[in-house]
Computed example of a mutant assay.
Amino acid sequence: MVGEAPAYLAELIAAKEAAEHAPAAGPASDVLAADLESLLAALTDAQSRTHLPGEARAHDDLDAFVVRIRLTYGR
């Protein structure tokens, strides 16, 4: 599938265009708001307990690795 769009892409785009300005279907907005608040609280809690650094520290190493692979394999 790499390099080529899936066969259903045109149909998917047409469906999106048709529904773009239609009313949303699904749970009521108050239910969604409560769920969002609950999920954000869970994420905030998980983030406060993580042992991961606040920022990635290996950016330069990753960049050098990608360049090396591209030079090696010609991509």
Rank of each mutant, 00 (worst) to 15 (best):
A15S: 14
M1Y: 10
D35Q: 10
G74L: 02
L43A: 12
A33C: 02
A22E: 13
L71Q: 06
E37S: 02
S29N: 10
V31P: 08
A34R: 02
D63T: 05
E20G: 03
P53E: 12
T72I: 00
R57F: 15
G54T: 03
A15K: 14
E55K: 07
T72H: 10
A56E: 14
R49M: 08
L39P: 06
T50E: 11
H21D: 15
E37Y: 05
F65E: 11
A18W: 07
A18M: 04
L52A: 15
A41V: 01
L40Q: 14
L39N: 12
V2M: 09
A22F: 06
L39H: 13
Y8V: 07
L12G: 12
A10D: 15
A28V: 00
S38T: 04
L32S: 10
A14D: 15
D61W: 03
R68T: 01
A42I: 01
A28I: 00
V67W: 07
A64I: 00
M1P: 07
A10K: 13
F65R: 06
L39V: 01
P6R: 01
V67C: 05
L9M: 09
L32G: 06
V31E: 14
E55P: 08
A58T: 11
G54E: 14
L43T: 06
E17S: 06
E4S: 05
S29D: 15
A33I: 01
V2G: 09
H51R: 06
A10I: 00
L62D: 13
A58W: 15
L36T: 05
A18S: 04
F65Y: 08
G26F: 14
L43Y: 14
A10S: 13
R57M: 14
D61S: 05
A5L: 05
A64T: 00
T44I: 10
S48V: 03
D60Q: 13
D45Y: 12
P53C: 08
V67M: 06
S48F: 12
K16M: 14
D35L: 02
L62T: 03
L52Y: 15
H51I: 00
A18E: 14
G54D: 13
R49V: 03
S38Y: 08
A34F: 04
P23F: 09
V66A: 02
A41S: 08
L32M: 11
R70W: 10
V2F: 13
F65L: 08
A56R: 12
E55R: 05
V66I: 02
E4Q: 08
P23L: 05
S29C: 02
E37Q: 04
D63C: 06
E55S: 12
A24V: 03
A58Y: 14
M1C: 04
L39Q: 13
Y73M: 01
T44P: 03
G26Y: 15
S38N: 04
L62W: 12
V2N: 11
A7P: 07
A42K: 06
D35I: 00
T44N: 13
P53N: 10
E20I: 00
A14S: 12
V66H: 01
T44E: 15
L52G: 09
G54W: 08
E4G: 03
P23D: 14
S48T: 04
M1S: 06
A24S: 11
D61Q: 08
E17K: 05
A7F: 04
V66R: 00
E11D: 15
A10W: 12
S29T: 06
L12I: 09
A18I: 00
F65S: 07
A58R: 13
L36R: 10
D63F: 11
